[in-house]
């Protein structure tokens, strides 16, 4: 007979505590969703707490009424896919090479990489570099800038050195495999979990990135989604101020500007949702790799 597990006071407190932590994490996300479907005045006056008040899709209509959002989506997908591939192209081979104990000057090279984690050139030298390379206002700059994350490089290197047995490489050596063959035929197929993790890390980075676009891209047709969303929000928030500064607007135009300005209050929540939704949808599909990839190599036997 299975003995009933005794529920201790600790378990009760722990569960309550963890539920509170869960609430603290989940509630802001939940709030963003319900606020985006509520009347702006209800959100501003603090009436929206648990469910949408005055359910409306106006915020989403306003966000999607701007055609630029689709250009932004297309650009971001392009930057995310190309950028992530470029990152992987640099990170995986580099990590593999650095995991090899017989690599000449391995520690020195690693030290050079590590230095970049603590010291950067700064915004102005970076800008001058990009400018002198003729990369201003190009798609390339948003793909190749920050090609390797040293943190990701270390994680991947650790995976290669701890999770793939050295004897596999020795066996390949005996069979006459070269370094490239060992990398492509042994290391890469066995590194799927860490590649999935890297894809996730890099892709999320590219998806959320907007700062580089602000600095290096002024051509609106190259703007990523985050910048487009930011502009749509500012455009509506500022509609009223712009209207107040403009002479000769008709009554209807002024009232429309006032309404759009009010709507901007809930639009920011809609923008959060629109920007995050694709990643939230994609996350469960890579989660199993993610957990596996992070755990492997965590314990060294």
């Amino acid at each position: 007979m299975k003995r009933k597990k005794k529920v201790s006071m600790f378990d009760v407190c722990n569960t309550i505590f963890m539920l509170l932590v869960l609430l603290i994490i989940v509630y802001p996300l939940y709030y963003a969703v319900i606020a985006s479907f509520s009347e702006a005045s209800a959100v501003a006056s603090g009436k929206v707490i648990w469910k949408p008040i005055g359910f409306t899709l106006d915020s989403y209509k306003q966000v999607f009424s701007n055609e630029k959002i689709w250009i932004g989506y297309a650009n971001t997908i392009y930057y995310t896919v190309c950028g992530t591939l470029f990152n992987l192209f640099l990170t995986i081979p580099t990590a593999y090479a650095l995991s090899k104990k017989n690599l000449p000057y391995r520690n020195f090279i690693m030290t050079i990489f590590m230095i970049t984690m603590y010291f950067g050139g700064g915004m102005v030298p970076n800008y001058l570099l990009v400018k002198n390379l003729g990369l201003l206002n190009t798609r390339t700059v948003l793909i190749i800038l920050g090609g390797i994350s040293v943190y990701n490089l270390i994680v991947t290197r650790t995976y290669f050195s701890t999770s793939i047995s050295e004897s596999l490489y020795e066996a390949a050596d005996i069979d006459g495999a070269g370094e490239f063959q060992k990398f492509l035929s042994i290391a890469v197929p066995l590194a799927k979990p860490i590649i999935a993790v890297m894809v996730l890390y890099y892709a999320v980075g590219h998806w959320n990135s907007y700062f580089n676009a602000l600095l290096y891209v002024s051509d609106k047709s190259l703007e990523p989604l985050q910048s487009v969303l930011r502009r749509i929000l500012i455009l509506n928030e500022d509609a009223l101020n712009q209207a107040l500064l403009t002479e000769s607007l008709s009554a209807d135009e002024l009232l429309d500007a006032a309404k759009r300005s009010q709507l901007a209050y809930t639009m920011k929540y809609a923008v959060v949702f629109v920007a995050s939704a694709p990643l939230l949808i994609a996350y469960p599909f890579v989660q199993k790799y993610f957990v596996k990839g992070v755990m492997i190599g965590a314990v060294k036997e």
Binding site: S41, A42, A44, S45, G46, Q262, Y265
Partner: peptide, 11 residues
């Protein structure tokens, strides 16, 4: 904030 005050005014 501005929006909260304006919500009271609008009401």
């Amino acid at each position: 904030d501005t929006q909260a005050s304006r919500a009271l005014e609008s009401a």
